[in-house]
């Protein structure tokens, strides 16, 4: 558990004007049958080998305190070994 790969996405129900704009643009390129486009952020946090404690808990705390805004965003963490 060295590198945390974090996806931050706007919650369902929160307007995503970037996603909507990309959706429209894809349709104007001729792509049909798109149900929706949502745009989020991708963040990598690499922990030092000697970082103490529960690494997953630590990165979750980082997500809640800074990397995401829990009012409007959800996050998911995936670990690279």
């Amino acid at each position: 558990m060295k590198k945390a790969k974090i996806h931050v996405m706007l919650k369902e129900g929160v307007l995503d004007p970037q996603g909507k704009a990309a959706h429209k643009s894809l349709e104007s390129l001729g792509y049909k049958g798109i149900e929706g486009v949502r745009i989020g952020k991708y963040i990598e946090v690499t922990l030092a080998d000697d970082a103490d404690g529960d690494r997953d808990k630590l990165v979750r705390e980082m997500c809640q305190r800074l990397l995401s805004n829990p009012v409007i965003e959800n996050y998911e963490i995936e670990w690279e070994k």
Binding site: L10, V14, L15, D16, P17, Q18, A21, N69, V71, I72
Partner: peptide, 15 residues
């Protein structure tokens, strides 16, 4: 963002 006020800001609807 600091929680002094409730809610959040997102991008303007027309970007």
């Amino acid at each position: 963002e600091s929680g002094i006020l409730p809610g959040a800001m997102i991008r303007n609807k027309d970007l």
